[in-house]
Amino acid sequence: MLGYIIRRILYAIPILIGVNLITFALFFVVNTPDDMARMQLGIKYVTPEAIEKWKIERGYDKPLLFNQEAEKLGKLTDTIFFEKSVSMFVFDFGRADDGRDIALEIKSRMLPSLAIALPVFVLGLIVYITIALLMVFFRATYIDFWGVVFCVALMSISSLFYIIAGQFLVSKLWHWVPISGYGSGLDAAKFLLLPILIGVIGSIGSSTRWYRTIFLEEMNKEYVRTARAKGLSERIVLFKHVLRNAMIPILTGAVVVVPLLFLGSLLVESFFGIPGLGSYTIDAINSQDFAIVRAMVFLGSMLYIIGLILTDISYTLVDPRIRLT
């Protein structure tokens, strides 16, 4: 298994270079270094000299991908792309355009993102799987039918609606929790309750239907018939056998997103004033801060790759037949 993991990590390097290149190309198609300088320097009294000075200081005065004036390898290395990318692979994210250290920012914002994403993920998983199992248990009854209708209805509603409706009802009308904000330690609880609740409710429709489909597929397999033939109750069949055998598709969807939980949610963080990584990314895009954008995309890609590796490893844990070689 170790050899497999090392191989997967090595495969990740060209993927990360590719992602970095695409991010770079997409960013600089829309923004030139001059645009970035103007965005940072403001719109009043900005002189061409000030723009040039800003670019030189941050290394944006060089060619983007290929330096014709340089010699030999310098043609590739004396470029914005190389200089800004190579440091990423040693996790040196550098400084944002406002001068703040990106790694420190990421570190401080990771916790608020996790404070919402982790409970939503864990609680959501429990709720969705439980409801899906109940719907399968009552399959072909009015409970299952109305459950599916309810799920489709929930899926049809925009996540923004849940946020606004949640804030309106729970915070504005009933005064149960603050509408937005964030605190440290136990003080954070009152701010997190509503976003977590909305995060869980917002995905009930789609997730429950997804797990229901998985369980229904398992129900038609022969081991289920064998279990019933043994005289096991439907509850035992469902919760002990079907659930265990459905773990592979569940893990496929779940484990891969675990590392991405660090990156936070763009919409929820913005509406609830949570100072997490989601709002950090959005702010960076709005202020054309390439240093942050590329760091966040790099981090996202890396975490996704880690998620995929973790998924593969988890297969071996839930299914002894699988061997990673």
Binding site: H175, W176, P178, I179, D187, A189, K190, L192, L193
Partner: peptide
């Protein structure tokens, strides 16, 4: 979380005080 919420709620009249 619920305990913290309850405790913080007990200490003040406004639960939604940020």
């Amino acid at each position: 979380i619920l305990l913290a919420l309850f405790l913080s709620a007990c200490g003040e009249s406004n639960w939604n005080n940020p």
